[in-house]
Amino acid sequence: MELTLNGSTRVYFVVGDPIAQVKSPEGMTAAFQAAGINGVCLPAHVAPDDLADWAAGIRKMKNADGLMVTVPHKIAFAGLCDEISDTARFLNTVNVVRFSENGWHGEMFDGRAQVEALLKNGAVLQGKKAVQAGAGGAGTAIAHALVTAGVSELAIVETDVQRRDSLIERLNSLGRAKVYAGTSDPSGFDIVVNATPLGMKAGDPLPFDGDKLTAEMFVGDVVTYPDTAWITKARAQGCRVSTGLDMYAAVRDLMADFLLQKAV
């Protein structure tokens, strides 16, 4: 692909801490250029304490049209937008922000993307029992999407007890599934999802007891490497899997359409 890059190029950012692991700069730039948009996506490594100041500076850029948000800023950035979608408001988290003359509009696609990736890889969610590790920005969205996709039960494993219990209460208020606190033992579940950053660094522990996985389980991940220790263990146990790269492909398309103001 021949890249158009000149003084008229529109700029998009992906902001996070760390940022080296993200695939968005290449993938989103390719999506923009393929759509005939003279735009590029650039990584921005911003610490949590500096996020508000950085966002205030970006607001003054006249050639910036939007940004994507990754760990650990998805919850904080919900409060920096002028308007957020109903889904983002329920979750209090965003992963993409579109700039316009009317302000910054935030949306959250992580949950929808994870569900799309699971289904595309052959998972059945309707009426199934799921357990998920992580209740941060992405984890909150994925838990919500699993419930709305029709799982009968969802157990949530999260070290921040207050965050976990708050999410459980909100999801149970929907009346769609039984949601409760889980453990690192995945026994008895049909769907087992890692929605934590575990696997981004060498030597990270597994999010669940991998020896308890069985071939009947379907395993998902959010970490955008093809073979994390979690996915490798799941495959060794005979499980079918959906990788973080599968989720990334889905979320990339959803975010590109949103930023280019297409229906999603």
Rank of each mutant, 00 (worst) to 15 (best):
M1Q: 07
M1P: 11
E2F: 15
E2S: 12
L3W: 10
N6E: 03
N6L: 09
G7C: 04
S8N: 14
S8L: 08
R10I: 08
V11F: 14
V14L: 04
D17R: 06
P18Y: 08
Q21Y: 14
V22W: 05
K23M: 09
P25F: 03
M28T: 08
A31C: 08
Q33G: 09
A34S: 14
A35K: 13
G36H: 12
I37N: 13
I37K: 15
I37V: 14
G39V: 02
L42W: 05
A44I: 04
A47Q: 14
D49P: 10
D49Y: 13
D49Q: 15
D50R: 15
L51P: 01
W54N: 07
A56E: 15
A56K: 15
G57D: 10
I58E: 11
M61H: 14
D65I: 05
M68A: 11
H73P: 01
I75S: 07
A76L: 05
A76Q: 13
G79R: 07
L80D: 03
D82C: 08
D82N: 10
I84N: 04
I84R: 06
T87S: 08
F90I: 07
V96S: 15
R98Y: 03
R98N: 12
F99D: 00
F99N: 11
H105T: 12
E107W: 08
M108I: 14
F109C: 06
F109I: 08
D110G: 13
G111S: 05
A113S: 11
V115N: 10
V115C: 01
L119E: 14
K120Y: 02
L125V: 12
Q126K: 15
G127C: 07
K128F: 01
A130W: 05
V131Y: 01
V131M: 07
Q132L: 13
G137D: 06
H144D: 05
A145H: 03
T148K: 05
V151A: 01
D160N: 13
L167Q: 02
E169N: 08
N172Y: 08
L174I: 02
G175D: 11
R176Y: 15
A177C: 13
A177K: 05
A177W: 12
S184W: 01
D185T: 12
S187L: 13
G188K: 04
I191K: 03
V192W: 06
V193F: 00
N194A: 09
A195E: 05
G199W: 01
G199E: 07
G199C: 02
A202C: 01
A202L: 12
G203P: 11
L206H: 06
G210W: 07
K212V: 09
T214F: 02
T214G: 03
A215G: 01
E216L: 04
M217S: 01
V219Y: 02
G220A: 00
T224L: 04
Y225A: 14
D227Q: 14
D227F: 06
A229I: 04
T232Y: 12
K233H: 11
R235K: 15
R235C: 05
R240H: 11
V241H: 02
S242Q: 04
T243G: 02
L254M: 12
L254V: 00
A256P: 00
L260A: 10
V264Q: 06
